[in-house]
């Protein structure tokens, strides 16, 4: 009993996700859900047999409106997140997502081994995004970009506003709306698969690591091993020790 007692890990409460990051996350999540739901309906509307007058109904137009409105919110939210990647705290920085050195890939491999293939029994402890997650989020940012380009490319022909018209060159890239629409549609499946895996892995980490993974996106706090914290924040830890 005594031996394990001395090994007991101290947990530290660390503020990881700032308020703007949490707002971004949930706005993004709601937008993506709305976009997927309306997108599927627009791609394959339900069969309604009716003899009503067309003027009495506008549900398909409304569905498209929701899609476009959500797309605008999604777009500006995305732009904001890119900005925050340069001014936010160290867990929100762009270098959490884009691999800039070989160690990034080494860490990714370690996480693959421990969390995905589970060839090792122990966990890799990180405070913010683990390297693999960060890289996957980088891929989602690319997917965001593709959806914004093709989406506003499709939308540009029906808008007078300069913003969507900035994208009027996109159809020419694809030779026309046909291919652009297909790419827009295919890319949707990336989001669906991402959401499923993402939600699962959040539960997984919360369950296996018990560090408040799920609630961290609510309040911003995570519980981190003192050891891991000192490794990640050497200066901060030193300062506090002095006190």
């Amino acid at each position: 009993m005594d031996t394990t007692y001395s090994k007991a890990h101290l947990l530290r409460r660390v503020f990881v996700w700032e308020l703007p990051v949490r707002y971004y996350h949930w706005i993004n999540a709601l937008c993506i859900l709305a976009l997927i739901a309306t997108g599927i309906i627009i791609g394959n509307p339900p069969a309604i047999m009716t003899s009503r007058e067309a003027y009495a109904s506008y549900w398909f137009g409304t569905t498209r409106f929701i899609h476009f409105a959500a797309a605008y919110i999604f777009f500006f939210n995305f732009i904001f997140r890119l900005y925050w990647g340069f001014v936010g705290n160290k867990y929100a920085r762009w270098n959490q997502f884009i691999p800039t050195n070989a160690k990034f890939f080494k860490d990714m491999w370690a996480i693959l081994k421990s969390d995905i293939f589970m060839t090792r029994g122990f966990q890799v402890h990180t405070i913010g995004h683990n390297r693999l997650a960060g890289f996957i989020y980088f891929l989602t940012f690319i997917a965001f970009g593709i959806q914004c380009l093709t989406g506003f490319g499709l939308y540009s022909a029906m808008s007078d506003w300069w913003l969507p018209n900035l994208f009027s060159w996109v159809p020419a890239l694809f030779g026309g709306d046909f291919m652009m629409r297909l790419v827009h549609h295919w890319a949707m499946w990336f989001f669906i698969l991402f959401v499923v895996v993402h939600v699962y892995l959040v539960f997984y980490h919360d369950y296996v690591e018990g560090r408040g993974e799920i609630s961290s996106m609510g309040g911003g706090w995570k519980f981190v091993d003192e050891e891991v914290f000192q490794k990640n924040h050497p200066s901060e830890a030193k300062q506090e020790n002095k006190k």
Binding site: P45, P46, A47, I48, T50, R52, A54, Y55, A56, S57, Y58, W59, F60, G61, T63
Partner: peptide
Amino acid sequence: RPYYDAGMF
């Protein structure tokens, strides 16, 4: 087009 917006296909 009105039938499209009304979702009547």
